[in-house]
Structures are given as C-alpha cells and as structure tokens.
C-alpha cells in the first residue's frame, strides 16, 4: 500500500528482470545454483527485492511437497520464479522463506 520506489541494489553482481532490468537480487544473497525451474536452471536466493507475491498453493516437487507462491516483477509483471512458504519434508525446511529465480528470466544489470 502506498507509493514506494523500487529498490536498487549494489555489489559485484546484480541480477535483474530480463524483461525490464528491474533489480531483483545480488550474488551475495545466492544460496544455491543447483535448482531447476520450468525453464531450466534456477537459483535459490535468501532475499529478493521488487517482486509481487502471488497466492500460496501446494505443489509436488522432486524433493517433496511444498507450499509455494509465484513471484512477479513489480514493474513489468513477468513471472520470475517462486517463493517457498513451507516445506513438508524435514530435510527441505531450509528453503522456507527463500526464493527461486529462474536463470533464463534474469539478466545481469551490473
């Protein structure tokens, strides 16, 4: 609610939305490159900015059942990946509250 400017990130490497170059995350917040999304390789991030979160729903993934929500670019609305709300498997709990960005939807902006 209310007017907010988009956030701008700084650092060695900043990932932006491939469509509109809106800043999304830095390499410092990347936890893992070993994920797969709908468009191939995907990255797990600790924190992501300038996104809108969709409604939560349960999905069966290769590592078990998770409650996730799709995330969209705040400027252009492109779908970028998803956020983990809940992991049902104990071993996957570390993903909760973290974000997946698909590599093919990202661009280096800096």
């Amino acid at each position: 609610m209310g007017m907010k400017y988009r956030r701008y990130l700084a650092g060695e490497r900043v990932y932006g939305c491939a469509t509109c170059r809106t800043h999304l995350a830095t390499i410092h917040s990347m936890i893992s490159r070993a994920f797969n999304g709908q468009h191939g390789r995907a990255y797990l991030f600790d924190g992501v900015v300038n996104i809108v979160e969709g409604e939560p729903n349960d999905r069966q993934m290769t590592t078990g059942k998770h409650t996730v929500r799709d995330i969209y670019c705040v400027k252009c609305g492109a779908t970028l990946g998803w956020k983990y709300d809940r992991a049902y498997e104990g071993s996957q709990k570390y993903k909760e509250g973290k974000f997946i960005l698909e590599r093919n939807l990202l661009v280096d902006v800096q």
């Binding site: 956030r7 701008y8 990130l9 700084a10 650092g11 995350a25 830095t26 410092h28 917040s29 991030f45 600790d46 924190g47 992501v48 900015v49 300038n50 996104i51 979160e53 956020k83 709300d85 909760e96 509250g97 973290k98 974000f99």
Partner: peptide, 22 residues
Amino acid sequence: RDTSPPISGSGNGASIANVPRS
C-alpha cells in the same frame, strides 16, 4: 564511497523488509 550493503540473509519471507535501506 558508497558501500551499499548486500542483501542480508535473515530470510523470514518478508523479502523487501530484509534488505537494509541504503
């Protein structure tokens, strides 16, 4: 010199709030 901190990692889901403001 501007040394904006990188994204912090408390990761509790409040994605925007996690990032310290410049």
